[in-house]
Design a binder for these strands. Structure first.
Lengths: 136, 136
DNA sequence: GCTTGACCTTGACATCATGGGAAGGTGCAC
DNA sequence: GTGCACCTTCCCATGATGTCAAGGTCAAGC
């Protein structure tokens, strides 16, 4: 199986497969006589694992650790759970940040007429830091 | 006022001030005879505006537009509101993504013993796509 | 056997906003 | 006149991914 087929089978682009190999996230693929990379079932499983982890937002560094644990039969599930917990915290922290931005923007937007006139509490807020429709 | 003072006064690093100038987000700063950049009150206001917009998660491209509107006395507040609305949508879309990740991870994590044993639904999910503690 | 088109190879560069550092010039206080 | 803090430009790095270019390879059709 060459890289294009592996990409189609796992949902990881050929480009990223090469990249993951270059940064040492996955082993170097086998090669045909003419230099084409070849992939077996084990490689596909690893790539699929990586894609699922990326879909859950894990960083490459975290995936590196997860892969190591996955391949370690003597692992403790506590180690995996800790990585997940850390990641959940990172995600919720980001969510809170976004939430704050959204709430501020919605508040400002609600006070903006959105008409032909130039007066705009959104710009006022950015320019002065003051909130015309302040509520506390 | 030179770049270091401007940075301290606005909360934008000197590095970023130079960068914003290089990409044309702000006008080229005046220079002293020896080449030091100089900043006046107007420049500080612009930089502060940019920092507040960044704090609200606006992209440089969006800030470019906001700055143009800010400096356009004939603007329609509707234009500003539209940019904000677009941005709110982007932010909420990201939040939804994060939310989904978090929910999945919390679910998997809840089913993980987190002890010395290797069995782990988190790894199982990444490896097989199956959910041991499936609920639907 | 030759052409064609799809695929592979490496490598360089772009994104986005930001940080780090090197090498050298400037300003000011002691 | 020395030292230190600041300034200048320029280059490189991040993280994950995309794009493009120039060239090699494979398989099918003629």
């Amino acid at each position: 199986m060459n890289i294009g087929e592996a990409a189609a089978a796992t949902g990881v682009t050929a480009k990223m497969i090469r990249h993951y190999e270059a940064i040492g996230l996955i082993h170097e693929a086998g090669r045909t006589g003419s230099g084409y990379r070849t992939y077996g079932p084990k490689d596909l499983a690893t790539l699929t694992f990586i894609r699922r982890a990326r879909d859950l937002g894990f960083s490459i560094a975290q995936i590196r650790d997860l892969l190591a644990l996955w391949q370690d039969r003597g692992r403790a599930s506590a180690d995996v759970k800790r990585i997940a917990a850390t990641h959940i915290e990172e995600l919720t922290a980001k969510m809170r940040q976004l939430q704050e931005m959204v709430m501020t923007l919605q508040h400002l937007s609600a006070n903006c007429q959105g008409d032909d006139r130039p007066d705009c509490p959104i710009l006022d807020r950015l320019a002065t830091g003051d909130d015309a429709g302040g509520c506390h």
